[in-house]
């Protein structure tokens, strides 16, 4: 009996412990964020890594997401003669939901995993310790720029994803399915509000925080050599993706 309790209790204990550690790391990152120096060069480097280098994958994902959305909704709406709403549906889905979530998932896969791997390697090869010995706080040097870059760049990428996705939807809707272009755009303008876009961007900033926090956390607490680094990377991607989807529901429920 006690054995079974322990069996059930261990994951819960682990979960609570991990959550506590993440929150502590976040708070520590916040305090180090406000302490000078602000490492602009490192932030720029991470922004380039998180933002610029994720550009192609995010844009391809968004374009095809918009295209397939247009295709699917077209067949649905045609049943009751509402083809003109395809544009609005694509635009609303993208700005409110798919733009932020797809972008965040793509960045998690690309940059979140890289953060875990990079920090994990630095941890197991004592580079993190070396930073300490040189009186440089690794949280400030390694984690703050990554979190800041993700929080800033994921919304930026989301703007692009929203736009490219709508362009993709427009291409399929207007050029392939023959919806009138004027009506397609008019319905978008009619139904999409600025709030849809801004709330999507607020969500994406949160996703950026989540993916970078989990990525750096997993890397920063890596133990056990090369195998540990691999494990940390996998866990970072899985946990971050799940957390993004869960928090997406919560944020959506709060905002819309």
């Amino acid at each position: 009996m006690i054995y079974f309790l322990e069996l059930a209790g261990r994951p819960i204990k682990l979960f609570v412990e991990e959550s506590g550690k993440i929150v502590l790391l976040f708070l520590s990152a916040l305090t180090w964020l406000v302490r000078p120096p602000l490492r602009l060069r490192l932030i720029a480097k991470q922004m380039e890594f998180v933002g610029v280098q994720s550009l192609s994958v995010v844009m391809i994902t968004a374009a095809f997401a918009g295209m397939v959305l247009a295709l699917q909704t077209y067949y649905g709406f045609r049943m009751f003669g509402g083809e003109s709403l395809v544009g609005a549906t694509v635009a609303l889905s993208l700005t409110r939901e798919l733009g932020p979530v797809f972008t965040a998932l793509m960045v998690t896969g690309r940059a979140g995993s890289a953060m875990a791997a990079e920090l994990g390697t630095m941890k197991v090869t004592e580079q993190v310790d070396a930073l300490y010995t040189m009186s440089v706080n690794p949280v400030q040097y390694l984690i703050v720029p990554r979190i800041l870059a993700a929080v800033l760049m994921v919304p930026i990428l989301t703007i692009l994803a929203d736009f490219i996705g709508i362009v993709g939807g427009y291409f399929v809707g207007v050029h392939l399915l023959g919806i009138n272009s004027g009506i397609f755009m008019a319905r978008i303008v009619e139904f999409v509000e600025m709030d849809d876009i801004t709330n999507g961007l607020i969500k994406s900033a949160f996703f950026g925080l989540i993916l970078s926090l989990i990525g750096t956390f997993k890397g920063f607490y890596t133990t056990g050599g090369a195998e540990g680094v691999g494990k940390a990377t996998t866990e970072a991607v899985v946990y971050a993706s799940v957390s993004i989807l869960i928090s997406d529901y919560i944020l959506t429920a709060l905002m819309f």
């Binding site: 720029a44 380039e48 703007i159 303008v189 600025m194």
Partner: peptide, 28 residues
């Protein structure tokens, strides 16, 4: 440089956001 690349990305996306905001939020 990294800064330039990030800058270009940010500027483009802000222009796009502005464009979308103008189209969508014309009565804001």
């Amino acid at each position: 440089s990294n800064e330039a690349k990030v800058g270009i990305l940010v500027v483009i996306s802000i222009i796009l956001l502005g464009y979308m905001a103008m189209r969508v939020g014309k009565f804001s």
